[in-house]
């Protein structure tokens, strides 16, 4: 009897599972909910960025590149194909210019095609100040 009772334990779980709802979803048909702090591709608030390069220094995956000619002429480029979505750049930027979106770039065989130029600061704009 005892043996049967113990054996029933798994059978019971089996019946429970059979009567309950399925826990998996058929993915593309059902939307998935992303968590609050999901780290997708990054975006830049151009107003805030001053081209200091701190984010580039701390990026572990060479996902950001800064070409700097002078204090006011620089170009910040983002390479999603290299990015590890680690969140270092978001934290490194002292001006909170970088934030993560909850989107990932689509897959591609040509990593060049998804490069984003985050900011291209030219001389003229600088003269307005």
């Amino acid at each position: 009897m005892q043996w049967l009772k113990k054996r029933m334990r798994l059978l019971l779980a089996l019946v429970e599972a059979l009567t309950g709802e399925a826990e998996t979803v058929s993915y593309p048909k059902t939307e998935l909910e992303l968590p609050k702090g999901y780290r997708g591709a990054i975006q830049l608030d151009e107003e805030k960025c001053i081209g200091c390069g701190l984010c580039v220094m701390d990026c572990p995956a060479h996902g950001l590149e800064l070409e700097k000619e002078s204090k006011s002429v620089y170009k910040l480029t983002y390479y999603p194909a290299r990015c590890a979505y680690c969140g270092q750049c978001e934290r490194a930027c002292h001006r909170q210019a970088i934030t993560h979106t909850n989107q990932l770039p689509g897959s591609t065989t040509d990593p060049e095609s998804i490069i984003v130029i985050l900011k291209d600061q030219k001389e003229q704009e600088d003269s307005d100040e």
């Binding site: 599972a17 059979l18 399925a22 826990e23 998996t24």
Partner: peptide
């Protein structure tokens, strides 16, 4: 299908 339902999958 049964196996899947036992495992709480859709099947």
């Amino acid at each position: 299908k049964l196996q899947a339902r036992f495992q709480r999958r859709v099947g």
